[in-house]
Design a protein around this nucleic acid. Structure first.
Length: 481
RNA sequence: GGCCUGUUGGUCAAGCGGUUAAGACGCUGCCCUCUCACGGCAGAAUCGGGAGUUCGAUUCUCCCACGGGUCACCA
């Protein structure tokens, strides 16, 4: 059997990571099994439609590296792939279902429906119109009475609708607990429940992979497949991604969108890798995996039943892992926008900076805080020279800097290596300890207690002229102590 | 409230009747080291509760508690 999965988002805004994960699993499952991954846009709800949301769906998939085999832009023979373009067909299917006894016309108006609430305020349709005579139905339709088409759950037969979910196992819901839901709205449009079943069948979807909010309504959908005489698909329901123990990650928090993470400086492979691990665990111990590895490793057996809390700290770690394996040149390219926004914008060689940053940055937006000090030399705290362990103080630093200045001035290469030679020669004179010398130099040149690299690396970065100028300035300030 | 469903360290999780209850993130300490990182090593920390079944339960059954989902002419 040719496996076909689909991702069927509604164009209602940004791509939430929960949706992305559902999409990812559908993609991985299809690719793992040599199947087809279909993209279908479910835009039957005009009220929730958001301008530009469809473009976001395309761009997200493209950026994420999830390539669909069929979709609105890739006809595979099962189109159209946009639900609103399919709207003409649903009514006929609904009528067919009525003919087969799986649905019926309902003419109840809102006023009557409102009277159906039970003691706890929960209403359930009472099948009032299920028993209408054929003549009644025809005359009401002829007279233009608005109607909907409802699913006909054969509650009178008793029974239970069950199916085997790929992750949750057997799910059973008694007919008596189901309601005759609306399939076709009074405007002739299908509801999600109906369109979904019809579309999945027509598109020959074999495995329906979606969030677990559909877990308990799936038996109802299966009854529709049965009534149509269609084969039921297999289902893989996914646990939720939570913000904390009691709240699921939602769009309301605004920080759970794929785009937001990109802006914060997360790398696409890291985001994909992390969300793949949320709710699924590979059989081995390897956690860092690219798309190809994920595809190879993906297995329903590893999908968990319980919801998982989104842990940004772990995603940061993964992101850092991806950054660490980049070359300075590669890093400089993705980091450029962040360098440009920092105080060092345009003043330093980004590749040089990148050499120091790849092992010290977790996400790209950390860049500014790591490099801004380069431009914040003036007025630094002279107490930075104090260090008990090295018996260091401003006084000793002054001596060291005064003696080092001429030595450094004679170094014309001004590379990390050349300066190492100069400094090592000075160390060998035995007058000061290595730690004291480097501390004096590092602070004297950077004005910072913590730098992303050693003293000579920083000096190389700043350039000879600027470094000498700064050392001189530091000497002046230290003399004033 | 009815129905569906879940519950292993702070977090992600492995486990599938007998284990010293993996691994990862985070955290703490040590080593490396001119600071910061990286890297290496070590450590603390977990089976929601109660009944059963069993020679033996984290694993099986039931009940309870606590979460989550669902109950629209939204998807």
């Amino acid at each position: 059997m040719d496996i076909r999965t689909r991702f069927a988002p509604s164009p209602t805004g940004f791509m939430h990571v929960g949706n992305l994960r559902t999409c990812l699993y559908g993609y991985l499952f299809a690719k793992k099994n040599g199947g087809t991954f279909v993209l279908r846009i479910e835009d039957t709800d005009q009220e929730r439609y958001v301008e530009g949301a469809v473009e976001i769906i395309y761009s997200t998939l493209a950026k994420a590296g999830i390539e669909h085999d069929e979709g609105p832009d890739k006809d595979g023979g099962y189109g159209p792939y946009i639900q609103s373009e399919r709207k003409g067909m649903y009514l006929d299917y609904a009528k067919d279902l009525v003919a087969k006894g799986g649905a019926y016309y309902c003419f109840c108006d809102k006023a009557r429906l409102d009277t159906l609430s039970n003691d706890s305020g929960i209403k359930k349709y009472d099948k009032h119109c299920a028993s209408l005579s054929q003549a009644d139905i025809e005359s009401k339709i002829k007279s233009g009475t608005p109607y909907v088409i409802r699913q006909n759950i054969r509650t009178e037969e008793g029974g239970v609708s069950s199916y085997d979910d790929m992750v949750f196992g057997t799910i059973s819901v008694p007919y008596s607990d189901m309601e005759d839901g609306v399939l076709i709205k009074s405007d002739g449009m299908p509801t999600y429940n109906f369109a979904n079943v019809v579309d999945d069948h027509l598109m020959k979807i074999t495995h329906v992979i979606r969030g677990m909010e559909y877990l308990s309504s799936t038996p109802k959908y299966n009854l529709m497949y049965d009534a149509f005489g269609w084969d039921r698909p297999l289902y893989m329901h996914l646990p939720q991604i939570m913000k904390d123990a009691t709240h699921k990650l939602s769009k309301r928090y605004g920080d759970a969108n794929f785009e937001d993470f990109l802006e914060k400086g997360y790398l696409v492979p890291a985001i994909i890798n992390y969300i793949a691990l949320l709710g699924w665990s590979p059989s081995g111990n390897q956690e860092k995996m690219d798309m190809a590895e994920l595809t190879e490793a993906f297995d329903v057996k590893g999908v968990s039943k319980s919801g998982s809390i989104f842990d940004e700290a772990k995603m940061r770690w993964l992101n850092a892992e991806y950054i660490k394996e980049m070359t300075p040149e590669q890093f400089a390219i993705v980091a450029k926008p962040y360098f440009d926004k920092s105080k060092v914008a345009g003043k330093y060689d980004y590749v040089q900076l990148s050499k120091l940053l790849t092992s010290r940055i977790e996400i790209l937006s950390d860049i500014a805080s790591k490099v801004d000090f380069l431009e914040e030399f003036k007025g630094y705290d002279l107490a930075l020279y104090d260090n008990k362990k090295n018996k260091m103080s401003g006084t000793v630093a002054l001596e060291i800097l005064e003696k080092m200045l001429p030595l450094l001035q004679s170094d014309n290469d001004w590379t990390n290596d050349s300066m190492q030679v100069v400094v090592n020669n000075f160390i060998e004179q035995g007058e000061y300890k290595k730690g004291q010398i480097f501390l004096a130099l590092r602070v004297g040149v950077t004005g910072s207690g913590m730098t992303p690299g050693g003293a000579t690396e920083m000096a190389e970065l700043l350039g000879k002229a600027e470094s000498i100028r700064r050392i001189s300035e530091s000497i002046e300030r230290l003399r004033g102590l």
